[in-house]
Amino acid sequence: MTTNQNTKFLVGGAVIVLALAYLIYTGVTQSAVYFITPSELAAAAVAGKAYRLGGMVVPGSVHWNPASLDLEFALTDGKGRVPVRHTGTPPDLFGEGRGAVVEGSWTPEGYFKATLIMAKHSENYQAPHGDPSSAAYEEMIRALQRRAPR
């Protein structure tokens, strides 16, 4: 071990420790889930294009046929409303008045065909019951974008 090599190892070790410390810092302060809102989709929907869409499941809009596994519901952010269709069983935490993020594409027939439904459970974004103000929806969208800390 020459002094030259010692310096090399010291500098290298410091670089690695700093990089890992930065990663752990970043990991603790997590970033958001990205999706577009129903009103953003309604403003500029391109048929056939893939999107990730997030919003609240409109109460009373869910129709599920357990025989054919056809699921229909609508997502809203208070301003826009997008009809969504999906084939499959809804996830556990999926429900009316709760937040959901769906992946899929906008169809020429005028509905969103979801290939994946992600429902998140948190007390923070219960449905803005009886309060259709846009502020309440904005709060819910923000809660939905937040990554659940583990």
Partner: peptide
Amino acid sequence: LGEPLGSVAH
């Protein structure tokens, strides 16, 4: 998907 790079910054 055309999302901004900021959405995958982490």
